[in-house]
Computed example of a mutant assay.
Amino acid sequence: MSQCLNPDCLHSNPEGCQFCQKCGSKLRLVERYYAKSILGQRGFGRTFLAVDDFKPSKPPCVIKQFLPQAQGTATLQKAAQLFDQEAQRLELLGKHPQIPELLAYFTADNRQYLVQEFIEGETLQQELDNQGAFTDNQIIALLKDLLPVLDFVHQNKVIHRDIKPENIIRRASDKKLVLVDFGAAKQVHSTSQSVTGTVIGSAEYCAPEQAMGKPQYGSDLYSLGVTCLYLLTQA
């Protein structure tokens, strides 16, 4: 199937169609990417499972479409800024094997798009739902796997700001943990940690200083700690 990317349509079309049968929109994004299905929607973005038609193997990828829902110019401007920053953070963090690679970032049909590597696997939230509470040994293994990734992020002067079970995927191919969703990430400058900024993140995992708009590198460790407690206790 080919998923229409028009937010007002989203019709699923038979394989091989070049244009949406319902609204007539072109189905291949920038003549390269075909959306196959909707993965989800939250915040200011909708994500699609897609195919890179420029590569012989037609590998899967993820298209994230900026989809502002809120009212008010200031809110929309902030949302657009965060979407742009997510692309910048992914590019800055390069090709770490446990962070999705940025493949493209562009504007098409007056909408912003980000294309990134598709990570096949289950989130830790899905694992918890399917298998129940984690054991002590599972949490120790989680920390050994994820702390070096977080250290890499911080070494590149980035604070993730939204670490939680839904944003950690266990990759199916090698069972390694992958840190995803850098939409809330913040790049740290020499003066920025002393300046109060926008409060971003999931409240139940958010460190006190982050809740006051002053996230630190340690705020990510706090969120990871809360994540581990939740996985251990389901509470």
Rank of each mutant, 00 (worst) to 15 (best):
M1A: 15
C4F: 07
C4Q: 06
N6A: 12
C9T: 03
L10H: 15
G16F: 06
C20L: 03
C20T: 00
Q21P: 06
R28S: 03
V30T: 15
K36L: 13
F44Q: 01
G45T: 07
T47Q: 09
F48A: 08
D53S: 09
D53M: 12
K55V: 07
F66D: 01
T75A: 13
T75D: 13
Q77N: 14
A79W: 00
F83D: 00
A87N: 05
L90P: 05
E91F: 15
L92Y: 05
L92C: 15
P97M: 09
L103E: 09
T107Y: 01
N110W: 00
F118L: 09
G121M: 04
T123Y: 12
L124S: 05
D129I: 05
A133I: 05
F134K: 01
N137R: 15
N137L: 14
N137S: 14
A141K: 10
L143H: 08
D145R: 08
D145F: 08
F152W: 02
H154R: 00
K157H: 15
K157S: 15
E166A: 14
R170N: 03
D174V: 06
V178M: 09
Q187M: 08
S194Y: 06
T196W: 11
Y205M: 00
C206G: 05
P208K: 01
Q210L: 06
Q216N: 11
Y217G: 04
G218N: 12
D220L: 06
S223I: 00
C228P: 07
T233Q: 02
